[in-house]
Amino acid sequence: MTSREGIVNWIFITPVMIILLGVTIFPLLFAYYMSAHDMTMVNFWHPNFVGLENYLEIITTTDFWSSLRFSLFFMVIVTTIETLLGLFMAVYFDRPLKGKRFLISFILIPLGIAPALFGIMMKLMLNEFVGIVPFILRHLGVTFHFFKDFTSSLITLIWVDVIQWTPFIFIVLYAAIQALPREPIEAAIVDGASKWQLFRYITLPMLKRTLIIVLIFRMMDALKTFDTIYVMTGGGPGISTTTLSIYIFKLALIRGDFGLAAAATILFLYLATVAISFALKRMRREGII
C-alpha cells in the first residue's frame, strides 16, 4: 500500500476523529487545567491558579473515600449476584419450554427502560402510600422501610439493579450457550455425565470468553452507576449511598466548585483507566478487539 492510499483511508475516519477529539480528548485535557484552578460556577473565564490545592482537598475529605468505597462495594455485590442469577437463567432456558420466546422477551423488558425511569418506577412501587409492595407486606404483618437507613437503602438499590441488569447478563450468556457446539455435550451425555458435571466441566469452560466480556461490561457499568441511585435515594441517607458519579455530580452542580469536581474527575479517570487497561489487555488476548 502506498502512503497516498494510506492518507485516503484516513479520510473515511476523519469525521469520527474530529468529533472524538473535540468532545472526549479535549475535555479531558481541559479537566486537568480546571483541576489546577479555583474555577467555580461564577468565574470560569478568569480562575486563579491554585496548583494541587484541589487534589489535596479531595484526598483529605472522607466523602471522596467513602463514595469510592461505596462504588466498589456496590459494583462487586451487584455484579456477583447478577452474574450468578443470569448464568442460572441462561442454563435454565437452555431446554424446551412452553412459550420460551415470549418469556424471554418479557424478561428483557427492564433492559429496555431508561434507568432513571426505572428508578422512579421502583420508587413508586415501594412508596408507603401507593406502593403495592408495602401494601402486601403490611397485610402479611411485615414492616420494612425501604429507604430508612443505609442497610435498607442498600438492599433496595441492589434489588433494583438486579432486576434491571440481570437480563443483560442472561441474554448474552443465553445466546452464547445456544451457539455452543453440541458435540462435546452429547459426547459427555453418552459417557454418562450428570447435569452438574455437564455444566461444570463442559458448558462453563466453553463460556469463559463470553463470561469475561460480559463481566467487563457489567463491572464498568456498575462502577459508574448514577441514574437509578440518584433518583431513588439521591445518595442518601446522608452520603451513605453516594457513588463516585453522584459525588462528582454534586461537587459540580450543587456546590458549584468546578475545580474540585475536576480534581475528583481526574482521580476517577486514573482509577477507571487502570481497570480498563486490564480489561482491554484481556480482550486483546482473547482476540475480541
Binding site: 473515511f12 463516585l244 455530580f249 476517577f268 477507571a272 486483546r284
Partner: peptide, 29 residues
C-alpha cells in the same frame, strides 16, 4: 484495519469509561 489496535482500543474505552469523567469539563465548555 486503519490505525492499528490503538484507535479501536480508544474508541472502545469511551464506551467503558464512566461518563461523569467527561461531564464536568464538558459542562464548563
Amino acid at each position: 484495519r486503519i490505525g492499528g489496535g490503538s484507535l479501536s482500543s480508544y474508541i472502545f474505552s469511551i464506551r467503558l469509561l464512566p461518563p461523569i469523567i467527561f461531564a464536568v469539563p464538558l459542562l464548563v465548555l
